[in-house]
Each structure stands twice: as C-alpha cells, then as structure tokens.
Write a protein that binds this DNA or RNA. Structure first.
Lengths: 383, 383
DNA sequence: TTCGTTACCGAAAACGTTGCCGATAGTTTA
DNA sequence: TAAACTATCGGCAACGTTTTCGGTAACGAA
C-alpha cells in the first residue's frame, strides 16, 4: 500500500482519475494526492535573461534592477553601473510584452491598408515607418485586400494586440464603419489617410483630390481637348467621387458640357478600364482626351491605345492621377498629378503619435498634402 | 498634533520627506506613515473588458471563463454558453499581450528587409502576409534601409517583442552576423531569403541567381553578342557574387573571354550604373550587350542609352534581372529573368511557421524558387 | 454504507515588469 | 542627542491570462 506523501499514513483510498492519473484520498489528513510524475523532462526552453536573473547575480531585488535600467533617480550610481554591467554580460533584453502589459501601452501602432504592393501604399508605409521608428514606435501592418470583412478582422486583430493607435485607409468595399466607431469611442486614437471616412470624427490626412483632378482636366482643356472622358474609380469611394467632382468643375468652368457617355467607373482592378476605352472609341464622336483617376488605368489604356495605333497625344491626350516611376519611363511619358505618398504616411504617423502622447482629446484636424502637376508629353498637343 | 492612522496615538514625529511628501514615525506602533493623497483623480482610462469582468457578471471564477473561451473539456456546456453570451455582450477581446506573456509565444513573426518600397520586397511581403495571416500569425516588419547598424537594431527590437520567428534578407552593408547567431543559438527560428548568409545554419529560400544570370548571358550570346558587359551589384553581397559567377560561366561555356574592363559594380543606388556605362562607351571597343544584375540599373541604363541615341538592341542589347511592371512597359520592352517575389515570401513564411510549430530541430533546408526567362525586344537582335 | 468515479469548478501560481509603499542606515540639524 | 532628513533598497501588488492542483457534489457499484 502506498503511503500518503503528507502525513505518511497508509490510509489512502482511491479517489477517481483526474487528467488521466490515478488520484488518492488520505483519510488521515483529509487531502487528495496524485502520484507526481517523477521524470518531468525539463523542456529546456531557451531562457531569455530577465531582470530576476540579474537580481540574483548581484543579490539585489528585481525592483532595484528595474530602477537601474529605467534611469530612476532613487538608485546608487555604483549599483546602477554594476547592474548595467551584468545586464550586458547576460545580454539582457527587456521583455516588451511584460513591459507593455504593465504599463498599459505597447508603443505599437497598427496600419491597415488595402494592398502593400501598390507603390502608393508602399510609399505611405515607408513614411509611417520612418516617423514611427524614430519616435520609438513599432508598426504592425495589415492588408485588407480591398475586402470589408478582412478589414474588420484586421482591426480586431490589431486591437487585440493592444495597439496604441491606428492608421487606416479603407478598402473599396467598406461602406459601414461600426468596426471603427466602437474602438474610437473607447478612446483608441485613429488617423485616417487617403481613403478616409467622414462618419467618424478622426484626424485625417488627404491629398488634393479635387484640385488635382481639376488641374489635370483644365490642363487638357488648355491643350485644346474638347471631349474629355474620365475613367473614374469605384463610385462608393470618397476619393473617387471627389476627383470626379474636380473633373466636372473643370469642365463647367471652361464651358464644356458634361457627357455621361464619357464616364466609366472601375474598381481599380487590372483591365477594367479597357471596357470603357472600347466603348468610347466606338462612339460617333470619340474623346480627344482621357483623364484616369487611377494611375494603373492610365498606363493600361496607354498600352491599349498604342496597340490600336492611336496617336498620343495627337488623337487622344492622356493624363493620370498619382505618379509612379512608370509614368516617366513609359512612352510617351505620362502627365500626372503627383501625390507624395511618403509625406502622407509620415504626416499621418506624426499626427497619430501626437494624439497618443498628448492623451488629451485634442481637436481633430484634417491636413491636405499638396500634390504637383507634372506635365509630360502624353498631354502636350500644342507645338 | 496629527494622530497616527494606525494606533491612534499622537506619538508622531517627523521623519523626513519621501518623494516630496512629509513622512511621520509613530513611536507607539513603530511604523512610518505618510499622509495619503486624498483626491486621486481616477484616471478613467477606457477599460477593455477582461475575463474578470465576465467572471464577475456570472459569479464564476476567471479560470472558468478562460476554460470556456479556450474550449477546454472540463467545463459544463451550459456554463460555456452563458460565458460566451456574456463575452459577446461585453465585446470581449482577449488581451494578446497577457496571453503571449503567459503562453510564452506571441504568434508573431518578424521580418527584416532592406526597403519596403522596392517592388521585389513588397511582393515578398505580400507573400509573407498571405501565408502568415492564414496560419494565424501576425507580422511585424522592419526596414534596415541597407544599413548594418539599423539591421541590428531591427533584430533587437523584434527579439524584444518576443517574436516567435524571424525572416530576414540582409542589408548590403551586412558582413558580420553576430547579431543573428546569438539568437539563433538560443533557439530562435530563423529563415533567410534572397540575401542569405551562409555562416549560420538556417533554412533559406533563394532564387536562381546563378542560373538566371547564366541564361540571360547565354541568351545574349545566342543573339550574337560578343562583348558583354555586366553591371554587377555590391561585391560583398552573396547574390551579386553568384550572379557574377553565372555571367562568367556563360562566357566560358561559349568561349568568350572575360574582360575586366566590362565589369562595373554598383550599390543598387540610383544613377550608379551610369558611371559604368559611360566608361564602357568610351572604350575603343564598346560592349554590344549589357547584363544588369539589378533591375533598376537596367532601366536607368536604357533611358541613358536612348538619350544617347544608341539603338537597342541593334547596337547594344540589354537584359536585366528581376522583373517589374516597368520591364514590359518601357520602350523597348526589357528582357529579364523574372523572379517570383510573392512565392519567395510565401515559401519562406511557410518554412518558418513549420519550424515554429514543430519545435524539433528539423534539419534546415534550402529551397530555390524557380525563375523564368522572359525574352523581350531589348535583346532580340535576330529576326 | 463505503468506496470508486466522473464532472465541474475555484484558488493560486506563474509569465516579466513597474511602481507604490515602507523600511533602514547613515547624516545633518537643532 | 534626539529629531529631522537623505539616499537607497526590498516587498508586494498589479497588468490579464493560462494552467496546475485540489476540492466537492453527485452518482454508480460493491
């Protein structure tokens, strides 16, 4: 008969199984015991050194180590030096998880964008990274892939990761913003950029969507275009609508009539613009100028026009929105309204971090990053 | 005279200041007291609901809530349903920090790349994101900006963040790998891609650097080129050297002599290739073919050649490494050896995650992602 | 009855840090 | 020469979660 490991008596009786192991009950000391597993293979997980390790080496308390490492004033200079020395010897790295859990902030900002691979967003990211990392913040990036549901999941994942703030440019599909409102109301700092949302009172960074479109179209008109088509974006998207407004305003200013048949909407996907192009070219009176709201659309239309042996800009002048390396390299070089993605990202990150550190409900602001009309030969019809 | 808050006696004597507040010593109960700050403004930080909140609502213990939420078997079905109901009502989100701290893993992988904005790396990132997020992993991205010291900081930051594994493509400057060895030896799963390092026994994902270069150069030779120049990369970088070897092997195979004056090294920075081009054109016998190891170099040389009215490919044929949208759009379209960045990223992420979940020191492997020769008119001299 | 069993659940100890509070030796002041 | 003070340090709770261990009620079997 086994003996009780506590009182030593042999008054053990079986008492069922628990988690696969036989359990006993000792009637003397009235307690339950299980036979402990003797050979617990010490999982040997590689141990990161902690402040407790340092404390043990020096015979001080963890608090003291923490104070030394955080430049507290309540610590002896000699002790601090010793602690720092040992910390270096043991290659101590603070566990940011524990730190964040304790302090209640992670020094991490979340970013939700539709697609990393688009040069515009890659540029924005670079700007965000630059500002964030020089301010001591880490960045966690999620792609929505232009899907509303993915965007919601992204936001949830980031919030669960306890981000200190959120930068977001909405997906094309996104038309409801409850997933943001909730966290915004709970006090999560949020800054919108590019594809903003006006239903929530966040700070925003936008480009000159209206102005840019206006300038591009006006430029076409000045070059003598009379029938200007627009390859517009998704109608749900705010920036699409704004650029569309800019287009109409320019037409109106110069007394050109708006023609519904010269409007084609796309979803920013490859090839979608060609449908519109096709229909325009079939018109009894085809356009003599095309304004593409999305950069990639302009490029693919140019390729198509060249294949059809249509002279650019003689027969049709072409302008695009948003620059790319491609615009200047393609033949003929494309006239664009250049945005500054890096600056957009940097500005948004700066605003967000300000909001995070100031805590105050500082009034939300809206900043517009200036763009720049870059005229190239795809639109130069004079001379 | 103040009364001691513990024994009620008035045997208080002053005992110095501590953190700005007067301190007293009670001779009766022999203890120190300070006057407590009466009005501690309750900071009202917006409270995320925790399992404790849920536990309180239902009058159960936090353990039970945790069990319910983690699909433990040791829980009553009804209790579980109730807990899940309340959790939804309170919009409970698990605090991933606490979870990670407890479990010892973060479900986060770190990525270090030289530059987000290069289409190649953007593509890799997209592949990583895709695989990681569908496996339930988050991704933390750092840019080294081609700087060794930044890369070291990146790695440290990621390790401090307790990442479960690391994907890295080294910076140009990186020639020592101590910052990785340390963590690798401690058991951090690491997978190299693209710019790998052979000093550490990590798993690696590479492209066909040798083969690609070989095929490109062989293609030039088949097109009749006799003097083929190479715009090589940084000599320290392994992939540069490998591509250079491929170049030399192709020359050798076809009995062409290697000419040192036809070699120019760049650091992958804008404009650097033009110096080499200049010197080549000044040669008594200029090259009739150019192989650019870096995509951007090929593009900028093409622009320069066109400006100098040199016919491509008639006078000089041009081929590049690594595709881009630009290659097909530029005039003339550029022959390249196309890499598949998305696949590289996806593969690397898959390997890393396998390594993480298997824990075992599974033998490290090295995978080569097949490339593809894409012949375009920049190199077609026959027809 | 009394033992053996199952099905649950709670308490408490982790995880690594920080910050509040209290304690003490030594020093200065009255 | 006690009182007041300074400079340091240790203890402990807290952050939110998981997990181990032990306890109890209810039920079946001997």
């Amino acid at each position: 008969m086994e003996k009780c490991s506590k009182c030593g008596e042999t008054t053990l009786i079986r008492s069922g199984f628990i988690r696969g192991k036989q359990r006993f009950f000792c009637k003397s000391c009235e307690s339950y015991i299980t036979i402990p597993n003797p050979n617990q293979p010490p999982s040997k997980k590689p141990h990161q050194t902690t402040i407790i390790d340092i404390a043990k080496v020096l015979g001080v308390s963890p608090s003291t180590v923490s104070r030394a490492l955080n430049d507290s004033s309540e610590i002896n200079e000699f002790t601090r030096q010793e602690i720092i020395r040992v910390a270096q010897e043991l290659d101590y790295r603070p566990n940011l998880l524990a730190q964040s859990l304790n302090r209640g902030q992670t020094h991490t900002i979340g970013v939700v964008i539709p697609d990393i691979q688009r040069p515009f967003f890659a540029g924005v990211l670079a700007g965000i990274q630059e500002v964030a990392s020089s301010a001591g913040y880490r960045v966690m990036i999620c792609q929505s892939n232009e899907s509303h549901s993915t965007e919601i999941l992204n936001v949830q994942a980031l919030v669960s990761s306890q981000i200190d703030g959120l930068l977001i440019s909405h997906s094309i599909e996104t038309n409801s913003f409850e997933h943001l409102k909730l966290h915004f109301n709970r006090g999560l700092p949020i800054v919108h950029f590019d594809r903003i949302c006006n239903e929530i009172d966040t700070s925003k960074v936008i480009q000159e969507d209206f102005n840019g479109a206006f300038q591009l179209v006006e430029h076409l008109i000045e070059q003598g275009c009379k029938r200007i088509a627009i390859c517009a974006g998704p109608p749900d998207l705010l920036i699409s609508r704004t650029r569309f407004e800019g287009y109409k305003a320019a037409l109106e200013k110069h007394g050109l009539s708006f023609d519904e048949s010269l409007v084609h909407h796309t979803g920013f996907k490859a090839g979608e613009s060609l449908v519109g192009l096709e229909s325009w070219l079939a018109l009894p009176e085809p356009p003599d100028g095309i304004f593409a709201v999305h950069h990639a659309n302009a490029v693919e239309m140019m390729v198509e026009l060249k294949q059809r042996k249509i002279k650019i800009p003689k027969q049709i002048a072409l302008v695009g929105f948003g620059d790319d390396q491609i615009a200047s390299l393609i033949e003929p070089p494309l006239t664009v309204f250049h945005l500054f993605p890096f600056k957009i990202g940097a500005t948004a990150a700066k605003m967000l971090i300000n909001q995070i550190v100031e805590k105050e409900q500082s009034p939300t602001s809206q900043v517009t990053i200036q763009g720049e009309l870059r005229v190239r030969s795809s639109s130069l019809r004079k001379n």
